[in-house]
Amino acid sequence: MRSVNEHINQSAQSEQNYNFAYLDEQTKRMIRRAILKGIAIPGYQVAFQGREMPMPYGWGTGGIMLSASILGPKDCFKVIDQGADDTTNAVSIRQFFEKVCDIEVTQKTANASVIQTRHRIPEHSLVEGQILVFQVPIPEPLRFIEPRETRTKKMHAYSDYGSMQVKLYEDIVQYGHIATSYAYPVIVHGRYLMDPSPIPKFDNPKLHMSPALLVFGAGREKRIYCIPPYTDVKSLDFEDHPFSIQQWDQACAQCGSHDSFLDEVLIDDQGGRMFVCSDTDFCQQRQGNSND
């Protein structure tokens, strides 16, 4: 046991005491092996030995572990939450990486080599060589149909996905259309049913044939899964009730975009509201501003 004084001395130099990107190299290697396995079996959930991170579970630890394992000194890192670079949790995660690996960070989608995201895919098309890291709360798309891991594992093994399609059928019976608006399930490479994390279904088409590598990390549930570049990703639907994405009557009040995901903002107490791009970088680029 170390004495209090030793701890106090250590705290003076504590930041140098952490390895590059916080995790030790063995752990990073273990996580990279899981990622490689995930790439080899698109959409399959690979169990890995998660680590406690200095942020709470549910706040992006899975994404943080993945980013920490793949970031190198030459990478340029972008973090978004709800599409925005300046929401508190995105700021907090970006600061963490600036502190523990001193790498270049950016808010521009085009400049980033690794982008960690929660709940959105950037509007700006990604390109080959980029990696998009998703934070995942519940990796198992079948979890709310079957709570037991031992059973859902078998359902995946036997492609036993009828129950998921039944959920969509029941939506149509009840509401006249499919009533899943985010975390909309997809079939990857014609085989595994996958939860794309709670992105709006608006973003699902961007998963299909993406030139960028898409990696998904669930820290608390200790699962990693991937969509390699140029992989077929199909959103579940019916022939006569095809998958469709959200549409707005309005354009973005700031940049005038008609084809981006819009957030609704309340502007007064009388129910007045306006719509603005959720992707702040996209919106600012269109307005001709620059952050970097």
Binding site: G162, Q165, E170, V173, D237, E239
Partner: peptide, 16 residues
Amino acid sequence: GGNIAEPLMQNGERNY
């Protein structure tokens, strides 16, 4: 209806 239709969906039927 969903109970009856599930086995068909399991076997790939995708027309509501």
